[in-house]
Nucleic acid binder design. Structure first.
Length: 610
RNA sequence: GGCGGUGUAGCUCAGUUGGUUAGAGCGCGGGACUCAUAAGCCCGAGGUCGUAGGUUCAAUCCCUACCGCCGCUACCA
């Protein structure tokens, strides 16, 4: 075993294989999760993109980092306005309902948010309005005019693709305002013959409208520098961003809607027309506003600053790949602009450190689509297979670097043949032997030092470092694979050592082997904890531990009475080799943590839900 | 149409900054065992790394073209 001095002032000896970082001053880690649009329950594709955030957060906490994990539901915008109308509900009631559904999804999945709030939070409106006003004052946001499409009856502003009409080139009806699917001509909404809204079928009217614009062209150099000099952008994210950056131009950041954050006082249009901040401007500000809201709620209103000041923290942002430009261009641009006009008492905001984007999770070869019924919801999958089977599958087979495909059959296979057969079965056979031959007391033989024992324990001890490094570099599926490989070592070991054979000999080989295996299981269980926290807690309890190693989020109210997610995660496990279980009494004898799934039954339930 | 991605064993995916026999898990075939959730262990069979050219001493990995699939194309993140 190698020892070395870490480079902090205390300089005491630490073991190389138990992760030196926790010995250093606790560092701040921001885990910022893309805000789900609160249109309804989240499908497993959303889970695949956001789950890595929880793995990183749990891992970082366990190695002693001070983690702030925030997000919330993105509630403003046209789609919710329309959806609520269709349901005959007020927009506020609709988003309250859908936001609650999403919070339930995340609680069930075990997403350990410190603060999961709302874009409809008054605090968010205030922060967004302040930034907006600041940018207007410094000239990065200015008034301009654009030609808008409107529903002539409802006056609703329409996106290009909601404008429908007859194609001027090929005469096909039902061409969209951006493109005709029949002849593939690129179109402008004004090109269409007889343009009408695809939502209401009402005629479309075009008229120049006044809006505030974010002058992205003025910020091009700073954004470019941010992208080029960021070593942590995944290559795809970098490519995606670089191609967009050459054509940066002012973008309208206000909309003519009733459902949104109003312009701050003193910045309203002179003609008295109503404008609200557009979601892609205000929603990204949510990372900051949620941090502030969390700090206020905690009674320490300045606490958020540790995560937003340069050189104090390392901030991860997690999202699906379609979200990347908003985090590599828009958000850094807003931050850069804001930092040009720092007022007394304000901090210079730090830009993202790590943009962790995932690919898309497809289903049956094409993307999830609620409207086409081609979808698997998180809530349904959790109902059928539980949170950890889903987590295991999404991390091990999910779209980490590229798009991947979701299949319930694969999930069941992964669970039954890996999680259950390799890990669950090991726990089961070891607890069974301890119960049978040692009256349920975990053996604690001193001096286990045969070569095979040492190999096994060294392997799991060094795996902390390997897995930690893989998690930090965003390779979660490889990290999980590393743990599973380590488990394979134990399955080989138990077959070779046959601890079930010498039951008559007390203090014999069996005691040594089961001691080693108990230590092994204790540590593997911790290595698995960020990935499958629910099951880890159960294994820990089965071995007689009372402490919480996998704290879970709970729903509380924020200072405005809105339902938010928070939690106390101070009791996280330690990311280092330990042997605390020896001598414990098993809490329930032989432990079966993972029930076996019957393929046909699961598929039947799943298909019935579709 | 434009932009981008992708095509590696039956399946889901790694990987190669170009270099001797291309990897994993699952699935499949065979074997020995029985503590264990018919799980675990051992052995094995499967791939001309989408197609055609080019660059190179050498390409699955670079370039070009083509074919297939997927996504985005700005006011639904």
């Amino acid at each position: 075993m190698i020892f070395y001095y870490n480079n902090n002032e205390r300089g005491h000896l630490i073991e190389n294989n138990t992760s030196s970082q926790r010995e250093q001053v606790a560092r701040k880690i921001g885990v910022f999760v893309a805000w789900p649009y609160s249109s309804g329950p989240r499908h497993v594709g959303h889970g695949a993109a956001l789950l890595p955030a929880d793995v990183v957060a749990r891992y970082e906490r366990s190695r002693g980092s001070d983690v702030l994990m925030v997000s919330g539901t993105d509630e403003y915008g046209t789609p919710n306005l329309i959806a609520a109308e269709k349901k005959g509900m007020s927009t506020k009631d609709f988003v309250d309902m859908t936001s609650a559904i999403i919070r339930k999804d995340f609680i069930d999945l075990g997403m350990s948010f410190d603060w999961f709030t709302h874009t409809t939070s008054p605090n968010h409106a205030e922060v967004a309005q302040n930034i907006f006003a600041n940018l207007v004052d410094s000239g990065y946001v200015t008034l301009g005019t654009m030609n808008g499409s409107f529903d002539s009856i409802t006056s609703q502003a329409l996106p290009d693709r909601y404008v429908e009409g007859t194609c001027p080139r090929c005469g096909t009806e039902g061409a969209r305002g951006d493109q005709c699917d029949n002849c593939t001509s690129l179109l402008d909404p004004t090109d269409l013959i007889d343009p009408h809204s695809s939502l209401t079928k009402n005629p479309v009217e075009f008229r120049p409208t006044q809006h505030y614009f974010l002058n992205l062209d003025l910020l091009k150099n700073e954004v470019e520098e941010f992208i080029e000099q960021n070593p942590n952008l995944r290559t795809e994210a970098k490519k995606l961003s670089s191609s967009l950056i050459s054509e940066l131009r002012p973008r309208a950041i206000t909309r003519e809607l009733s459902w949104g954050i109003p312009l701050p006082k003193g910045y309203e249009l002179e003609n008295g027309e109503n404008r609200v901040l557009y979601v892609w401007f205000e929603a990204v500000i949510g990372y900051l506003s949620a941090s502030i809201e969390w700090a206020k709620n905690k009674g320490n209103p300045e606490a958020w600053k540790d995560w937003w000041t340069e050189n104090k923290s390392k901030n991860y942002y997690f999202m699906g790949k379609d979200n990347v430009p908003f985090h590599t261009i828009i958000w850094p641009a807003i931050i850069a602009a804001k930092n040009h006009n720092v007022r007394d008492g304000e901090v210079i905001l730090k830009k993202p450190d790590i943009i962790a984007s995932s690919g898309n999770l497809n289903f049956g070869g094409s993307k999830f689509s609620s409207s086409r019924g081609n979808v698997a919801y998180i809530k349904d999958m959790i109902k059928i297979v539980g949170p950890d089977a889903l987590r295991y599958y999404l991390i091990s087979s999910g779209p980490e670097n590229r798009d991947s495909n979701f299949a319930v059959e694969d999930l069941i296979l992964k669970y039954n043949n890996e999680l259950l057969a390799k890990w669950g079965n090991l726990v089961s056979r070891v607890t069974n032997l301890i119960e049978r031959d040692f009256n349920g007391i975990v053996p604690s033989k001193e001096n286990i030092n045969s070569v095979s024992d040492q190999d096994l324990l060294n392997h799991v001890a060094t795996t902390y470092k390997t897995v930690g490094e893989l998690i930090e570099s965003g390779k979660l599926s490889a990290a999980l694979r590393e743990v599973m490989d380590c488990i394979a070592h134990a399955n080989k070991y138990i077959v070779e050592e046959k601890p079930w054979e010498d039951t008559s000999i007390k203090n014999g080989r069996s005691e040594e082997v089961l001691t080693a295996l108990s230590i092994f299981i204790e540590n593997i269980n911790k290595l698995l904890c960020p990935f499958i926290p629910h099951a880890s807690q159960k294994v820990s309890n089965a071995f007689g531990q009372k402490d919480i190693i996998s704290p879970m989020p709970i729903e509380i109210k924020n200072q405005y009475g809105q339902g938010v997610l928070s939690g106390d995660y101070s009791q996280s496990l330690d990311w280092k080799y330990t042997k605390n279980w020896l001598g414990n009494k098993l809490s329930g004898g032989k432990a079966v943590i993972f029930p076996k799934f019957k393929n046909e039954e699961i598929l039947k339930v799943f298909n019935d839900l579709l």
